[in-house]
Write a protein that binds this DNA or RNA. Sequence first.
DNA 1: CAACAATTGAGAGCAGCGCTCTTGACAGCC
DNA 2: GGCTGTCAAGAGCGCTGCTCTCAATTGTTG
Lengths: 243, 243
Amino acid sequence: MNDPAADAETTLRTPRERARAQTIADIVRLGREHLAIHGAAALSLRAVARDLGVVSSAVYRYVANRDELLTLLLVDAYSELRDAVDAAVNALPERDFDGRFKALGRAVRTWALREPARYGLLFGSPVPGYRAPAGQTTTPGTRVIYSLVGNLDSAYRAGKITTAVRTAVVPSVLAADLEAIRAGLGLAVPNEVMANGTLVWTSLFGTVSFEVFGQYGADTFRARDELFEHHLTVLAGIAGLGA
Amino acid sequence: MNDPAADAETTLRTPRERARAQTIADIVRLGREHLAIHGAAALSLRAVARDLGVVSSAVYRYVANRDELLTLLLVDAYSELRDAVDAAVNALPERDFDGRFKALGRAVRTWALREPARYGLLFGSPVPGYRAPAGQTTTPGTRVIYSLVGNLDSAYRAGKITTAVRTAVVPSVLAADLEAIRAGLGLAVPNEVMANGTLVWTSLFGTVSFEVFGQYGADTFRARDELFEHHLTVLAGIAGLGA
DNA sequence: CAACAATTGAGAGCAGCGCTCTTGACAGCC
DNA sequence: GGCTGTCAAGAGCGCTGCTCTCAATTGTTG
C-alpha cells in the first residue's frame, strides 16, 4: 500500500534517485506477487523482468541477484506480519494480557492463511542455497516474538501470571540462556515463564504451519477455527495467562 | 538400509524385472543423497542421471517425472521416520506411557536434526508446483500420529490420563470432527484429551521445526537439548501424561 | 544551451534445468 | 533364428540465473 521507496534514510533529491527507488519498489511488488502465487523456490527474476516490461538483464541494474530480491521480500513479509500483529494487539487495552496474546495468535494465523507462500518463506523449510543475511533480517524478524514476551512481561509485572505455570524445573545451562535474553531485553519474568513462553511461541507456529502447509488431512478437521481457538486457550494457560 | 525393490508385491521373476527394480532403487538412493544435500526444490533428475552414469533422458524410462521421484522420496522419508520412532517407542514397556511419548518426541527431533532437508520435505513449506498424491502418501504419513494417539488411548484405558487436562470446553463442530476420528481409529479417549493431543502433536513439530529450520537465533539458545526436554515435559503434561 | 558523464536497457551468450522425441542397439522369448 | 520389447543415447525446445558488451538515453554541469 505505502511506498517502500519513501523509507530511505534521507529524502530522495534527484529525479534519478527517485526513479531508481520507484523501479526497485516495482520489482519488489512484482516479486511479492510472484512469490504469493508460485512460492519462493519458483521465484524468477526473468519473470519479474517480463512483468516489468523490461529485458531480463536490466533488473540486475537494481537488484544484485535472486538472493537479494529474496531478502527484500523476506523483510517485506516480516514487516507486513508485524504490522498486522501490532494492529490486532493494540486494538485491545494494555492490561488485557490474555486478550492480547490471543489477538496476536489470531493475527498470525489470519495473515498466514491469507499469504501462505510468504508465510512459508518466513517459517517454512529454508530455500535451498539461500541464507538470509542476519544483518538485514534479524531485526524485522524478531518484532513479533518481542511483542509476545513483552506482553508476558507486562502481565508478570502486573501480577497476572498464574503460579501454576511453574511445573517443570529449568536446568542450569538453559537458565543461563534465559538470563541472557532477560538481560538483553530488560525483562522481569522468571525462568519458568520464559521457558514456557518459548514453548507457546513455537507451538503457535506449529499449529499455524500444520494448517497452512496442509499437514492435517484434507478433511480431518472441518472446525479449524474452533480447533485453533481451543489451542489458543490451552496455550494461554501454558503461558500463565489462563483464567 | 534394506532394499526397496524387495517390497514389490510378488517376487521378481525375470532378470529384466530384477534389473529394472534395482535401477529404480539406485535412482531413489541417489535422489535421497541429493535431497539431503541440496533440498527438495533443488532436486535435479539430470544430476541423478549423472551420478547414475547415464544420460539424462534415460532415467525417464524408470521414473515418469521429477514429481514421481519426489513422491518416492517422500514415502521413503516417511517410512524411515516411522521406523526410527517405532524403534524408540518399542524399546520401552507398553505401560510406560509418559516415557513412550517422550521417546517418540526425541526420536522425531533426532531424525529431523540428522535429516533436515528430508524433514523439510515432510513438514516444511510445500514444494512449489508439487502436490503429493494422497493415495501413496497418506498411509505412510499418518503412522507417527497414530503411534502418538495410540499411546494416549492406551494410557486412557489404563486410567493414567490426568483429569486436570479437561480445562477447555470442546465446541460442538470440533466435537463432531473428533468423534469421526475416534470412530475411524476405534479409540476410547474423550474429546478433551484428543483436542489436547492435537495441540501436543502440532507443538512437537513446531519446536522441532524451529530448531531444524534455524528460526531460533544463531546463539539465542545454547542449551537446545535442555530446552527440548523442558518442552517435552510440559507437552506431556498437556497430553495428560504428566506425573 | 550544449557537452559531458553517469545511468540505463537491449542483446548475445554460457551453463544449467525438465521434458520429449527419434534412432539404433541390445537382450529375452517363442 | 527371427521377432519383440526394452534400453541408452542424442538432439532439441523452452525455461532458469547471471555476465558481458554496446548503444541510447537521461540528468547534470560548465
